[in-house]
Nucleic acid binder design. Structure first.
Length: 420
RNA sequence: GUGGAUGUGGCGAAGCGGUUAACGCACCGGAUUGUGGCUCCGGCACUCGAGGGUUCAAUCCCCUUCAUCCACCCCA
């Protein structure tokens, strides 16, 4: 057997790629409407960036990174997400010197070494937004509204916005301590994973899917009770903006983002239409990230969406993402004379320059086979060139749906074609 | 990393320890040689993911491996 593509990767081919173009096209357009500009960062970065940015206790850093040494013995890593890179780019390019907030977006492949599953691949594609420079809740609102609006325009029906606040360095320690005190007496009842989380990052215990852990944490102290005045009012403001924009949401106190950099707002948009795990969009505020990777303190908020998941959710909904492909005109030759083929070649070029979707035979097929091909390509018209007509500068136009045809001068063809 | 299912031509899909591996779709060709979509006829798997084993004999049994799908975990 020949070489196959690596596990968890995909070849995207037509007609699949047409769907991607539609989704990405809408993303670019929506970003223009919202004022986010595209940024492109490297596919790989210094490993250190992700360790410090994403957090060394996260699963992503601990077991999912594609890390390698380059020829210069540098440790590099294929980006598992793009927010750390965007923050790095903001610092490195001194974007703090621009008018704030700096609003950027990206689309591209990310890499995580995981077991492939429904909506989960080793190379997958994310779109994301980052707004740097504003500490205000209204910016959180804009980011969430973007995610909601985008999924709306795509026609995604069964979506749900979950909202939570994970606090900030001021209020988190108190909650953390309260949580640990609450869990301590029942520590040995928790699942092994949560026993580990208890010490490192007790908030993640709240997020555990284990039934028993959920039962234990049912009445655990929640973050909202511990929010400092600033986080509390920020969170209330975010909610009031969402209400003002008529975006429905539900508070989910168990929602904890898997990346360490989040502060205050955390949100997730889920859809029933994908496999077991329905997260298609996630994000929040990360006021500490830029500081963590070595800069001054810059407030920021952003989101990321999994494109494979969005497309697959739309598909299970039976949504037609991309319009059906068709051809305006197929140019067929009735004989294999050099003059005929050249005339057909020139005519095809002419029709394309005029704006038609035009195809011609590239395989030396019989006329019958050419018409069959025209039919397959969903041609509205077929132009038949050659024989006696060509000698008098004429050709035949055949309307495929009606099955009728007529003869016209070759230089009149453009005018006689009425297309979709 | 753990668990379950699956792997027959481009796709879908029968088969079963034993002569030429059904069938459907798609594709190619033809039905008096310049015309599609319908119909009819013909063609299209030295081979059943790969490697090894059991057997007189394996696509069908066993082992290994790879891959896919699904779930856990985690994330988008």
């Amino acid at each position: 057997m020949s070489i196959l593509r690596p596990r968890g990767t995909n070849d995207f081919l037509p007609p699949e790629t047409a769907k991607w173009q539609v989704v990405e096209g809408l993303l670019h357009q929506l970003c223009r409407e919202f004022g986010y500009k595209e940024a492109r960062t490297p596919i790989f970065e210094h490993t250190e960036l992700f360790i410090r940015g994403v957090g060394d206790t996260t699963d992503i850093v601990q077991k999912e990174m594609y890390t390698f040494l380059d020829g210069g013995n540098r440790s590099l890593t294929l980006r598992p997400e793009n927010t750390a890179s965007m923050a790095r780019a903001y610092l490195e390019n001194k974007l703090a010197g621009l008018a704030q907030p700096v609003k950027l977006y990206y689309i591209g492949p990310m890499f995580r070494y995981e077991r492939p599953q429904a909506g989960r691949f080793r190379q997958f594609h994310q779109f994301g937004l980052e707004a740097f420079g504003s500490p205000l809740a209204i910016n959180d609102g804009e980011v969430i509204a973007f995610g909601w609006e985008f999924l709306n325009r795509l026609g995604l029906k069964d979506k749900q916005l979950l909202l939570n606040s994970v606090g900030c360095p001021v209020c988190r320690p108190a909650h953390r301590e309260a949580l640990q005190n609450y869990l301590a007496p029942r520590l040995n009842e928790l699942c092994p994973l949560c026993q580990d989380r208890y010490a490192r990052n007790p908030m993640r215990v709240l997020d555990c899917k284990n039934e028993n852990c959920q039962k234990i944490t049912k009445d655990a102290p929640n973050m909202l009770q511990y929010l400092c005045p600033e986080c509390d009012s920020h969170f209330k403001r975010v909610q009031s903006f969402l209400k003002a924009a008529e975006i429905p949401f539900t508070l989910n106190l168990r929602l904890v983002r898997g990346l360490d950099y989040y502060t205050k707002t955390a949100f997730e948009i889920q859809s029933e239409s994908i496999g077991a795990k329905g997260a298609i969009c996630g994000g929040g505020r990360y006021d500490e990230l830029i500081c963590d990777i070595g800069g001054v303190s810059v407030p920021a908020v952003g989101l990321a969406m999994g494109l494979e998941r969005i497309i697959s959710a739309l598909e299970t909904q039976g949504e037609e993402i991309a319009p059906e492909e068709y051809t305006d005109v197929y140019i067929a030759t009735v004989d294999k004379e050099i003059k005929t083929e050249e005339a057909a070649f020139a005519l095809t070029r002419d029709l394309r320059n005029f704006g038609f979707i035009a195809e011609q035979d590239l395989l030396g097929r019989s006329l019958k086979a050419q018409l069959k091909q025209a039919d397959r390509l969903k041609a509205c018209y077929t132009v038949l060139i050659g024989g006696d007509e060509l000698k008098s500068g004429q050709a035949i136009i055949r309307e495929m749906a009606a099955g009728e045809q007529f003869t016209v001068a070759i230089n009149e063809i453009k005018k006689r074609l009425i297309t979709k």
